[in-house]
Amino acid sequence: MYSKNDVKEFIEMLEGSSLSVLEIKNGDGSAIRLEKAISAAPAVVMQANAPASVNESAPVAAPAAPAAPSAPVAEGKTINSPIVGVFYAAPSPDSNPYVSVGQKISKGDTICIVEAMKCMNEIQSELDGEVTEVLVKDGDLVEYGQPLFRVK
Rank of each mutant, 00 (worst) to 15 (best):
E133L: 09
V151S: 10
G139P: 03
E12P: 00
K77W: 09
V54N: 02
K107S: 13
Y88P: 05
V151E: 07
M13H: 11
V54L: 15
V134H: 02
L34W: 11
N55A: 04
D138N: 12
G76K: 10
K107P: 03
E130Q: 05
K4Y: 06
E35F: 12
P82S: 08
R33W: 01
A37K: 15
Q124S: 13
F10T: 06
E115H: 07
I111P: 04
E143V: 02
V84N: 04
E75H: 14
A40R: 13
L14D: 04
M1W: 03
G27Q: 14
Y98P: 02
A71P: 07
K8A: 05
I11P: 07
E12C: 06
G108R: 13
G145C: 05
D128A: 02
E133K: 14
I83H: 01
V45I: 11
R33Y: 10
S3R: 03
Y144C: 07
A64K: 15
A58E: 14
P63Y: 04
D28T: 08
S125D: 12
E9R: 11
Q103K: 11
Y98H: 06
F87Q: 01
M46T: 09
F149E: 03
M13P: 05
Y144S: 10
A89F: 06
G16T: 05
A90T: 07
I11F: 02
C119D: 03
T110H: 01
P91H: 09
A52W: 00
I83Y: 05
K137P: 01
N80T: 08
E122N: 09
E143D: 13
K118A: 11
G29R: 03
K4E: 15
G27L: 14
G108K: 01
E133W: 03
I32T: 11
D138I: 01
K104N: 08
G85T: 06
G27N: 14
L141T: 04
V86N: 07
E75F: 12
E12D: 14
I11Y: 02
L34K: 12
E133G: 06
V99A: 03
Q103R: 00
A64G: 13
F149P: 06
E130V: 13
D138L: 01
E23V: 09
F10M: 12
R150T: 04
V84R: 05
V21R: 10
C112W: 13
V151R: 06
K137W: 02
V142C: 00
A40F: 15
G139E: 01
P72W: 12
L34F: 09
P42A: 15
S100N: 01
E15A: 10
I24C: 10
S81K: 03
G76L: 11
A58T: 14
E23A: 12
K77C: 01
E133P: 00
K152Q: 11
Q146W: 04
A116D: 03
G76R: 14
I38D: 09
P59Q: 11
S53I: 15
D128N: 09
V60P: 04
G139C: 07
P147C: 10
G27F: 14
G76C: 14
V99D: 06
P69E: 14
Y144Q: 07
K137A: 08
E143N: 04
N55E: 15
D6F: 04
I105H: 00
R150G: 12
E75A: 15
A37Y: 08
D138Y: 11
L34M: 00
D6N: 12
T78K: 08
A74D: 15
A37E: 14
L34D: 08
G85N: 04
A116P: 04
T132W: 00
Y88K: 02
E9N: 14
V21L: 10
N55T: 08
S3V: 05
